[in-house]
């Protein structure tokens, strides 16, 4: 964990995600999952959060220049924010389509690139927002209601 803040409502955890090491993709999602388990959060909810965070982490690692994942856990909900340092997405509506992918051959060899990541995130979360400025950043905000 790269930072940990508590406030009146709950806690905020922040993790840096790099873009250069395929072998550790999934580590951050795994850590988040373990935190949720320690907090006695419902298993089905943990499952949804885990799948969505994992897909987001992979996207940051393979499509972006790196970024961070911020998790806010309160009594009633879990919020996940993923923000990276670009290159951004030209057409977010297109990116959201099932099967759309620009993954490299290397990524495809590793089993990524089905174009299902973003649709899966949307399916797993209760609220989903994608925002991107081409050449600058991509930011996802997901909410999971307990």
């Amino acid at each position: 964990m790269n930072s940990f803040i508590t406030n009146n409502d709950g806690i905020v955890l922040k993790y840096v995600v790099g873009n250069d090491d395929f072998s550790i993709v999934g580590e951050v999602s795994s850590k988040i999952k373990n935190v949720l388990k320690q907090l006695n959060i419902d298993n089905k909810l943990i499952r949804r959060v885990s799948i969505a965070t994992y897909e987001a982490e992979v996207n940051v690692a393979i499509h972006s220049l790196g970024g961070y994942i911020e998790v806010t856990i309160t009594e009633n909900e879990i919020k996940i924010k993923i923000r990276d340092n670009g290159p951004g997405i030209k057409d977010t509506k297109l990116a959201m389509e099932k099967g759309y992918s620009t993954a490299s051959n290397k990524a495809r060899e590793l089993g990524f690139g089905a174009g299902m990541g973003l649709p899966n995130m949307k399916r797993c979360s209760d609220e989903f927002k994608i925002e991107s400025k081409f050449g600058e950043y991509t930011e996802l905000n997901m909410k999971f209601i307990k």
């Binding site: 709950g10 806690i11 388990k37 320690q38 907090l39 006695n40 959060i41 856990i73 009594e75």
Partner: peptide
């Protein structure tokens, strides 16, 4: 055994 507390608010406090 892996849970910090069955009460969410207590678990959060312990985690902090």
């Amino acid at each position: 055994v892996m849970k910090l507390d069955n009460d969410f608010n207590k678990a959060i406090k312990k985690m902090a």
